[in-house]
Design a protein around this nucleic acid. Sequence first.
DNA 1: GCCCATGTTGATATATTACTCAACGTTGAG
DNA 2: CTCAACGTTGAGTAATATATCAACATGGGC
Lengths: 123, 123
Amino acid sequence: MGSAFGQRLRELRRQAGLSQRRLAKEVGVDFSYVSKLENDRLPAPSAETVIRLAEAIGASTEELLAVAKKIPGAVGDEVVGEPAAQRFLRMASTMKLSGPEWEAMVGKLESLREKEPSGGDEP
Amino acid sequence: MGSAFGQRLRELRRQAGLSQRRLAKEVGVDFSYVSKLENDRLPAPSAETVIRLAEAIGASTEELLAVAKKIPGAVGDEVVGEPAAQRFLRMASTMKLSGPEWEAMVGKLESLREKEPSGGDEP
DNA sequence: GCCCATGTTGATATATTACTCAACGTTGAG
DNA sequence: CTCAACGTTGAGTAATATATCAACATGGGC
């Protein structure tokens, strides 16, 4: 199982009509690096570089981060400070949550705060 | 902003009645490493070492992982492959979820699968 | 034929992570 | 005193992450 990152990057770059060199220049990396990424000769780049790549080719940062299996440092650092967050992640991992299930959890997250903050802590 | 990891590790180790050398031996690291960790002279260890430390001192792995701000590789790799998971994490991060809110999300996770699988398509 | 834009490859560089090793200081028991 | 267990410190190492640089190959346009 290759990382699939390279293949997807190549697809998206071509859809954007960019050469490797042009893309590389826009995101600020060496063009040969892009080539190696597309051929899976090197592991996926840092989350920050993945994000710049996604932006340059007009793709979803979340999709590209997902295929790269990277978490932006800021997000990770912010999230993991709570023991309950650790529990949540471990459970989600062992349950192997599907995409739709994750979507459902996003929905729960939204509803967490959009309902009246009247003071009660459980509905 | 010290990492707080060192202080907590020291507390827990003392509660467990272990010397630095004894603990180090049990988890398989050098004793001087434990000393530096407790004095915040070095950043928190890898998630795997944090877990072994927690086990050796009889503490909650989740608490120690949380103060170390580390995610076990297995968990991270499992979780981040879904774009929706990336969205979830980013939202959770910007919302700065509190402990109780994370607990609530754990509850949602549990209820996700314990309710009748009415249309089950796999045995 | 020559150029030049594109893509590929091998060797190498730099930073960070995650530690170890050797030496030194302190304190209480015998 | 001395020695033994405990703790602290400075320097160094090994592995991984994250790339760069120089060189080469290919195909289309003039």
